[in-house]
Design a binder for these strands. Structure first.
Lengths: 221, 221
DNA sequence: GCCACCGTTACGGAAAACCGTAATCATATT
DNA sequence: AATATGATTACGGTTTTCCGTAACGGTGGC
């Protein structure tokens, strides 16, 4: 089991909650920080002193305040940590449930676990810790389909065009008519519906509005 | 009438079209640029040389390319110009027909005319030029209702909350239920519909998807 | 040829959004 | 107290979206 763990989480209550959990799990050396920069500094220091952390549990979003930060988000912190300390295990613990974001964290930054904050977030966190202690990866059930072989995680030009036209206020019917006119295939309303449905599950979106909001945030359109 | 005019427009064809129009109107000194930064430099130079421009016709959106720009958009250019050269007349000539954007340009940056690129854009442009030569303001018919006393141009916290919840994927029904639970008024589905309808006309949006896309672009949510 | 597979299209029903109208309620004015 | 005004809510009808099912059509394997 892990001996030295760092918790990076700006909300004090949640930070405390994770601390308690770790204590119950028998972890004795636990450090807590509320800023990403502090997290990096502590880990760097510990490494230089030859008493490195062996696990970091980090949030993704940190409220900005007066303190200007080199690492404004958990995302950037994780990226830095994993590139500088490849042996350090990292669990991301966040409310974020967008599959694309989760995929990026695993694929690009090689995190070890992703746990969604939710009703039974701590239960999942416990499970995550025991899994990665065995060198396994862990994925919260909420986002378990992020890597299901089903959905191709590729978004092609057609998808982008679809989302773009949606965001411009065209109805699915109008898009269908437009594609027919411009000889873009598939053009049927049915196919457009089906494609949008695929995109919705792919991005964990509740409806078309949500979907467009998400892909705009991702900068896809 | 104006003697020295600058055209800032990245699309060569449109730039040329405006040039022809100005020539027909008897303007002899016409400069043309395809980058916002060049526009600023030319105007600054002319001012220092005591041969200032008396009119700028600028687009809003400029395609980004390899040249990095201090002023990435017509919006930022106009802002700078009007603050540094208050006497310089400015016509914004753009396809953009979002009322909020037009309002901002008039209210915050004090532009002199807003002309929508459209079927008879050049006709409107001619009219705009003659109007502001008489120190009048001009507004394209497409966006003439930007200042109609009808629509309050104020967006309050309730509106933002509404848009935010929409963008998070909640249905209008769910938002209604949420507001009832949290004692936020008005909470009825009917009121929510009505408010969203008001926002749609206010932002020239075709539907809720379009609306959310627009306010996200504006950074309202 | 036959068949399985996959993308496209068609269709129908349920849910949600859209839109106009009207009733209800609270508040301010006289 | 009576009335006017505006905000909130209710309701009904149309359109659009959402979702499941199924038919159609081309491609590749056997």
């Amino acid at each position: 089991m892990f001996k030295k763990v760092l918790i990076a989480e700006d909300m004090e209550d949640i930070n405390k909650g994770v601390f308690s959990l770790l204590t119950e799990l028998g972890v004795t050396q636990i450090d807590q920080v509320q800023y990403c920069d502090d997290a990096y500094l502590k880990i760097k220091r510990a490494d230089l002193d030859n008493v490195p952390f062996d696990l970091v549990i980090s949030d993704l979003s940190f409220k900005v305040d007066h303190r200007s930060q080199t690492y404004p988000s958990g995302h950037s912190l994780v990226e830095k940590l994993k590139s500088e300390f490849p042996n350090l295990k990292v669990i991301v613990y966040s409310v974020e449930d967008r599959l694309q974001a989760v995929r990026t964290l695993f694929n690009q930054h090689d995190i070890d676990a992703y746990v969604c904050k939710s009703r039974n977030g701590l239960k999942n966190l416990t499970q995550a810790i025991s899994e990665i202690a065995k060198d396994e990866k862990f994925l919260s059930p909420e986002v378990s389909n992020a890597f299901s072989s089903e959905n191709e995680l590729e978004i092609d030009d057609y998808d982008i065009s679809l989302l773009d036209n949606l965001s411009k206020g065209l109805s699915q019917d109008e898009i269908s008519a437009l594609y027919r006119k411009e000889n873009i295939s598939p053009a049927s309303l049915s196919s457009i519906e089906k494609r949008l449905n695929k995109l919705r599950v792919q991005f964990n979106a509740n409806n078309a509005i949500h979907l467009v909001a998400i892909v705009k945030d991702l900068g896809l359109i």
